[in-house]
């Protein structure tokens, strides 16, 4: 219930109406959106019970490794009510054809299977907020100082998910496992997304804000 309360407000892509349509515009819009989402994600992480008591270095390590998984999972959750459309933001919904013409097809094709997976599970908002926090705590950063403290955070989030499923889905005792078994595909999708944006950064045609660049470089 705490995670539901601290869930961030909706965010808008606000594509620049003066820019000509095309891949540069689409990618500029997404990079700007991602930069603003990162600020929100960092603020959100601080509200996860147990996160703020980790050392600053460990907080940074977890976020540097999990930020794209958190971003992707948020996009996927917003896209659940749609049919093969990706809801990057409330005002930026892209179908396959639009993705093709705006240079977002690789990203689109990478995200759709994850949307289908969570649709099949009928993932609920409570499950989404817990999985997002679990993705952060379980980010497998190689630079963690206090492994025990991070393990404790993972355990408390895992326990919250188990408690929720025991009370809300007693008919499916394997639901926690089914949800956790989606995490490899989430990581795989996030890895593809990072590679996609890293190659865009290397091409240098799309402006990127400093925080987004900093987080991309941390994954390089």
């Amino acid at each position: 219930s705490h995670l539901l309360v601290v869930e961030p407000e909706k965010i808008y892509a606000m594509p620049d109406p003066t820019m000509p349509d095309g891949d540069v515009k689409a990618l500029t819009t997404l990079c700007d959106l991602a930069d603003r989402e990162l600020v929100v994600i960092i603020g959100w992480a601080k509200h996860i019970p147990g996160f703020a008591t980790l050392s600053l270095a460990d907080q940074m390590s977890l976020l540097q490794s999990a930020w794209m998984e958190i971003l992707v999972l948020s996009i996927v959750f917003r896209s659940l009510p749609c049919d093969d459309e990706i809801v990057y933001a409330e005002d930026y919904v892209v179908d396959e054809e639009q993705a093709r013409i705006s240079g977002l097809l690789d990203l689109h094709v990478a995200i759709v299977p994850l949307v289908r997976r969570y649709k099949k599970l009928r993932m609920e908002k409570e499950e989404f907020v817990m999985l997002k926090a679990i993705a952060l705590a379980n980010s497998d950063s190689m630079h963690i100082e206090n492994i025990e403290a991070v393990q404790k955070l993972q355990d408390s989030l895992h326990e919250a998910l188990q408690d929720f499923e025991a009370s809300q889905h007693p008919e499916d005792p394997r639901r926690v496992g089914k949800l956790l078994m989606t995490l490899p595909l989430l990581r795989q999708t996030a890895t593809k997304a990072v590679q996609h944006f890293y190659s865009i950064k290397m091409q240098g045609k799309v402006p990127m804000h400093k925080l987004f660049l900093e987080m991309l470089e941390a994954k390089a």
Binding site: G43, L56, Q64, E214
Partner: peptide, 15 residues
């Protein structure tokens, strides 16, 4: 930490 200035700053901000 110097390399990750913005993340560091945002985490240190109390808001």
């Amino acid at each position: 930490k110097e390399k990750h200035k913005i993340l560091h700053q945002l985490l240190q901000n109390s808001t």
